[in-house]
Amino acid sequence: MPTGTPLAASRSTTERHDMTPSDPGARRAGADTTLVRHLNRRTVLTTLRSHPDITLSTLGSLTGLSRATLSAVLEELTERGLLEEHAPATGGSGRPARRYAFRATAGYVLGLHFTPNQVRAVVTDLEGQVVARERTEVPPSVPAPERLARARALAETATSQAGPVWSVGVATTGVVGPEGRVLRSSQIAGWTGLDLVGTVRGWYGRDAVAGNDGTLAALGEKWQGAARYADDVALILSGRPSGQGIVLGGRAHHGRSGAAAELGRLLQDQTWNAAAVLDEAGRTAQDVFRAASEGEEEASRLAAHLAHHTARAASVLVSVLDPQLVVIAGELTVGGRPFLEAVRLQLETMCINVPAVVLSELGDDAVPLGAARLALDALEEKEYALEG
C-alpha cells in the first residue's frame, strides 16, 4: 500500500479456511483476531512514538510481543508509510541492529478556525509539528458560500506546503452539534444550520470533525500551550471573539449538544462582553491597557472592568468544575501580567477555591491548533476501533 494511506485504511486479508463466514465461531474468531491485531498495532505505535530510533529487540522488550508478531506489525506500518527504518549504528562488535522510528510526516492534519472577521488555518504532522500557517480577512457580512470558498482556497494554500491531508478539524463561533452541524451562530452570516463537517469533508475526501472555538482553544492549550500539565482546564476566550471552553480528563468537553460552556444567556448583561465594552469606548484592548499602564484614569477604569467580567465568566466554570487551571486566551491577553493579576484577584472574591490562572501561550494558534488536535484524536481513534 502506498505511503499516504490513512491510518485505518489497511485491512488484513487473512482468513480461517476451516469455518464458513456464517459460522458464529468463525465470526467470533475473526473479531478476536481483529482485536488482537489492533491492540498489537496500538502498542507498537505508542512505543515508537515514545521511543524514537528504537531497535527490534528493545521494541520487543518494551511491548512484550514476539519477534514474529513485531515483524508483521512493522511490515504493515511500513507499507502504510507510518514507519521508517534508520541505518544501523556503526562502531560496535557484531551485526548492527536495525532501528525504527514513527514517521510523523506520513500524513498531515488541517485545523481551521472561523471567526466573524477571519479564517485561520494551521497544518501539523502526525506528532503536532506545525508546518504551515495561513489566514485571511473575511468580514462578518460575507455570505456563507463565499466564506467557505475563501476558506477552501486558504486551506489549499496551507496544505500545499505539507503533504497528504488525513483529517480536518474545524472550529467556529457558535454551537456545533455532535455531527458537525452549526446549531446556532449569531455572528456569522448564513452560518446557522450549516453542515460544516460535511462541507469540509468534501474538500479532501477525508474525515472531518468540528467544535466550538472556546472548547478547541482549551484543547489547543492542553496539547501544546499553557495547560500541558493539567487534565481539567477552564478557558476564557476573551475579546473578539469571546467564549469559554472546557477540557476534562485531558479531552475536550463538548457536552450533550455541543453547547458546553456557552454562558451567553447566563451572563445576559452585555457589560460582561469585552467586545461590546471596547466598541462602546471606541478603543482597542491594546490601547486601553497601554494607557492604563501610563496612568490614564478612564483606561484604568476600563481595564478593571474587563478584568472583573473576565473573572465573572471564569467564576461560573470554576465553581462548577473546580478545575486545576484557568487559561485566559484571546484579545485581552495583551494586558499581560497586570491584567492576569487583576483577574485572579477578582476570582478570589467570587470562588471558594481559586485554581492557578495563566495566560495563553499559543496566541492566535490556540483555536486552530485545538481543531488540529481534535482531527488527530479522531484519526487515532479510528485506527484503534474494532474494525479490520
Rank of each mutant, 00 (worst) to 15 (best):
residue 172 T to H: 03
residue 173 T to Q: 10
residue 173 T to N: 07
residue 174 G to Y: 01
residue 175 V to R: 09
residue 175 V to C: 03
residue 175 V to N: 04
residue 175 V to G: 02
residue 177 G to A: 14
residue 177 G to C: 03
residue 178 P to A: 12
residue 178 P to W: 04
residue 178 P to N: 06
residue 179 E to A: 15
residue 180 G to K: 08
residue 180 G to C: 10
residue 181 R to F: 12
residue 183 L to W: 11
residue 184 R to T: 06
residue 185 S to D: 15
residue 186 S to F: 08
residue 187 Q to K: 15
residue 187 Q to V: 13
residue 188 I to R: 10
residue 188 I to L: 13
residue 189 A to R: 15
residue 189 A to S: 14
residue 189 A to E: 15
residue 189 A to T: 15
residue 190 G to Q: 08
residue 193 G to R: 13
residue 193 G to C: 10
residue 194 L to H: 07
residue 195 D to Q: 09
residue 195 D to W: 05
residue 195 D to A: 11
residue 195 D to M: 04
residue 195 D to G: 07
residue 196 L to E: 05
residue 196 L to R: 03
residue 197 V to S: 10
residue 197 V to G: 11
residue 197 V to P: 12
residue 197 V to H: 06
residue 197 V to D: 07
residue 198 G to F: 10
residue 199 T to A: 05
residue 200 V to C: 01
residue 201 R to A: 12
residue 202 G to M: 08
residue 202 G to L: 03
residue 203 W to K: 01
residue 204 Y to I: 03
residue 204 Y to K: 00
residue 204 Y to S: 01
residue 204 Y to V: 00
residue 205 G to R: 05
residue 205 G to E: 08
residue 205 G to I: 06
residue 206 R to E: 06
residue 206 R to G: 01
residue 207 D to S: 12
residue 209 V to P: 10
residue 210 A to W: 10
residue 210 A to G: 12
residue 210 A to R: 12
residue 211 G to Y: 12
residue 212 N to D: 14
residue 212 N to I: 03
residue 213 D to P: 03
residue 213 D to H: 13
residue 214 G to F: 02
residue 214 G to H: 03
residue 214 G to C: 02
residue 215 T to E: 05
residue 215 T to R: 04
residue 216 L to D: 10
residue 220 G to P: 06
residue 221 E to K: 02
residue 222 K to L: 09
residue 222 K to F: 07
residue 224 Q to Y: 02
residue 226 A to S: 02
residue 226 A to H: 01
residue 227 A to N: 00
residue 227 A to D: 00
